[in-house]
Amino acid sequence: MRNLGLSIYPDHSDFEKNKNYLELGHKYGFKRIFMSMLEVGDSVEAVKNKYRKIIDVGNRLGYQTFLDVSPRIFQKLNISYADLSFFHELHVTGIRLDQAFDGATEAMLSYNKYGLIIELNMSNNVDYLNNIISYQANTPFIYGCHNFYPQVGTALPFDFFVKCSQRFKHFGIHTAAFVASQVGKIGPWNVNDGLPTLEEDRRLPIAVQAKHLFASGLIDDVIIGNAYASEAELAALSQVDRYQLKFKMNFVSAASEIEKKIALETQHFRRGDMNQLVIRSTMPRVTYKSVPNPPHDNQIEYQKGDVLVGNDSFGIYKNELQIVLKPHKEPRKNKIGQLSPEEVFLLDFIKPWSKFKLQI
Rank of each mutant, 00 (worst) to 15 (best):
E39K: 13
R72A: 15
Y135F: 15
D68G: 10
K76G: 04
F74Y: 09
Y114S: 06
S80V: 05
I54M: 03
L120N: 01
G103V: 09
F86N: 05
L84Q: 10
K50H: 07
I95D: 00
L120F: 04
N125I: 01
L90N: 10
N78F: 06
P140R: 03
R52L: 11
Q136K: 15
H88D: 14
E106M: 08
N59D: 05
T139D: 02
H146T: 13
S123C: 02
N121I: 00
Y81L: 15
A104C: 08
A46L: 14
N147R: 04
L61C: 01
R96H: 04
F141A: 10
N59A: 07
Q99C: 11
D102T: 14
N112Y: 06
Y51E: 04
V92I: 11
N78I: 02
L120K: 01
Y135W: 12
Y135D: 04
P150H: 01
Y81T: 13
E45I: 13
D68C: 02
T65Y: 01
I54R: 04
V152M: 13
N125W: 06
Q64N: 11
F86D: 08
Q64W: 04
S123W: 02
I73H: 00
S80H: 12
N124S: 12
I95A: 08
G41S: 14
G58W: 05
A100T: 06
D68N: 10
E119R: 08
R52H: 11
G94E: 06
F148P: 04
A137C: 03
I54T: 06
I133P: 00
K76L: 15
V92Y: 11
T93D: 11
H88T: 02
Y51L: 14
M122W: 00
T139Y: 06
K76I: 00
Q136R: 15
Y63H: 06
S110Y: 00
R52F: 05
S123E: 01
G115E: 09
G103Y: 07
S134W: 06
S123M: 01
H88F: 13
N138F: 04
R72G: 08
K50I: 11
G144R: 00
F101T: 07
Q75G: 11
D98K: 08
H88A: 11
F86A: 09
D102V: 03
N59R: 09
F101Q: 07
P140S: 12
D127R: 14
R60Y: 10
Y81Q: 13
P71Y: 03
A104P: 03
N124M: 12
V47Q: 07
Q99H: 10
L38D: 04
L116W: 02
S80G: 04
A82L: 14
L84V: 08
N130P: 00
V47D: 06
Y63R: 01
A104K: 15
L120A: 01
I54N: 09
V47P: 08
R96V: 05
F66G: 03
M122V: 00
D102C: 11
L90M: 12
Y111H: 14
D83K: 07
R72S: 11
F66R: 02
F141W: 09
G94V: 12
L90Y: 11
Y114K: 10
V152Q: 12
N147V: 08
H91C: 10
F141Y: 15
S134Q: 14
I132Y: 07
Y63I: 06
E119F: 00
V126D: 15
L109V: 07
Y111L: 05
N78H: 14
Y111M: 05
P150D: 06
L120M: 15
I117W: 02
A107H: 05
